[in-house]
Design a protein around this nucleic acid. Structure first.
Lengths: 135, 135
DNA sequence: CTTGACCTTCCCATGGTGGGAAGCCTTATC
DNA sequence: GATAAGGCTTCCCACCATGGGAAGGTCAAG
């Protein structure tokens, strides 16, 4: 099948399929005599794998490792688990960061009158944070 | 003061100060006859404001609005509050996304033996999702 | 044989940041 | 006054993952 059909079947856009090929995440597709890329059901299977890994927030480098393990029939599930848990740690760290931001902002917003007058603790905090030492 | 000193004093790198100027987030700095950018304490104050807004996860466009409100002596604190709460909503949405990913991965990883054998529910899920709910 | 949908490659943009090169400016030291 | 060090300038490149779009080739249906 052509790239458009493979894109539709896998949920990976044609643009991204070409990009993944260019960056070596997937092997170069076979070509027709006219130069059209050809994809098998196997290929679509792989693309779907990639799509789902992306949906779970894996970066392309992580997916590269996942694909390697996937293809390796003698892999150790411990390696897969380690890869996944490392990613979970990254996610949790990012979540904590965002949560800190949200909590700070909510606290400030709760203290803001939200009326037609200009005074606002949100701006005050941005101007001169309360918890900041000598700057 | 020169850009390097302003960078040190504000916590915004010289690179980023130039970038903010180029993109119109901050007004063009005054220049010496030799073309060096000059910054006042006022300017550093503004740069610190920007820095803190970045630390709270505001994108540059949001900071542009915050700066506008900050400078507007007749602003309504309601507008600031609205801006902040919109950002909180964005943060919470992103947090929920990441949380979903982390929870899914943790569930799968918990079911993975993590030993030297190849079978692994993480890879199985990537290969053919079971459409499992977070339990 | 034309038309329209598809494919190809190539370039550009995003956002926010850093790296680095080539060349000018300033300041301190000799 | 000369020289060296370090700061400044602009300009280009890179990241990551993705999309837009142009110019031109290909295929299938009418």
């Amino acid at each position: 099948m052509n790239i458009g059909e493979a894109a539709k079947a896998s949920g990976v856009s044609a643009k991204m399929i070409r990009y993944y090929e260019e960056t070596g995440l997937i092997p170069p597709a076979a070509r027709t005599s006219a130069g059209y890329r050809q994809y098998s059901d196997q290929d679509v299977h792989m693309l779907r794998f990639i799509r789902r890994a992306r949906d779970l927030g894996f970066a392309v480098e992580g997916i590269r490792e996942l694909l390697g393990l996937w293809r390796d029939q003698s892999r150790h599930s411990a390696d897969v688990k380690r890869l996944a848990m490392t990613h979970v740690t990254d996610l949790r760290r990012k979540i904590a960061e965002l949560e800190d931001m949200a909590a700070t902002l909510e606290t400030l917003a709760r203290a803001c009158h939200g009326n037609d007058r200009p005074d606002c603790p949100i701006l005050s905090e941005l101007e001169a944070p309360a918890d900041m030492q000598t700057d």
